[in-house]
Amino acid sequence: MKPNVTPGGTPHVALMPKEETYGRMVWRRFRRHKLAVVSLFVLLLLYGMAIFAPIVAPYHYDHMDFTKSLHPPSFTSWFGTDRIGGDIFSRVVWGSRISLAVGLVAAGIALVIGTIIGALAGYFGGIIDDILMRFTEVVASFPTMFLLLTVIAVLPRSTMNIMIVIGATAWPGLARMVRGQFLSLREMDYVEAARAVGATDTSIVFTHILLNTMAPIIVNASLRIGGAILVESGLSFLGLGVISPPSWGTILNGGRPLLRSAPWISTIPGLFIFVTVLAFNYVGDGLRDALDPRATR
């Protein structure tokens, strides 16, 4: 770039307006959404807690101490203890690993399937579009919870299977959205221009269309993480989760029979699920505002 030159002839680099990168622009706009910023901070804390669980948690998740059965929350055990004297705080900290990982992986799987199917359908159209969209409708028409119940009941119980199954049922909405974007973008002049200069299908799909679809995909994915966490906790609540290591839903389910005598066992992990999902929804909202160039706030 040519340096800015004043009439006197001396270059005035300092006067040159600094070019704002896309990332900076997004961050500047994201920061205006106060609740989204707070939520991002909360999520970073939660993920930090999950990563450093062995350091943060005073006990292992399988720890038991029958002398401390059903203690209410106190300074020694912040969130109280369960029937076998397990420390709820420690279990919640360890549980964050499972719950947060399920959210990320399941949403990731949904993201990959949804984007590929939506992109193929939207870009090629015709019979491919027809087949893929009918398939999408078939998957979307099953009441999710019943489908999940069946598949989880049939498959060997493992956290990995739960992640895969949640991801494999959560993609239809995303596929429809990506398809819509591709349908409209493939008619754009700049795509036509790329095709005219001999760009291949692959390069058009990846560098020209997909990049321009990233904003809504990212927003959708961030909302889907929260959704996946809710679904996993629901399954665990129904007793279909993995018992050890526990997720937040598993801990909550464990406290159900003791709701009258020890309400903290169920209440606290539920609060964590709620706050995490709320945070993902607000971050998604903030991203929507920040990434959409037409939005004015």
Partner: peptide
């Protein structure tokens, strides 16, 4: 935002304990 983020079963348990009982 609250309604969309709240786990149904958690709300149900809270209502069960703090209202129902």
């Amino acid at each position: 935002f609250l309604g969309q983020s709240m786990p149904e079963f958690w709300l149900a348990l809270l209502l069960l304990f703090y209202v129902g009982l």
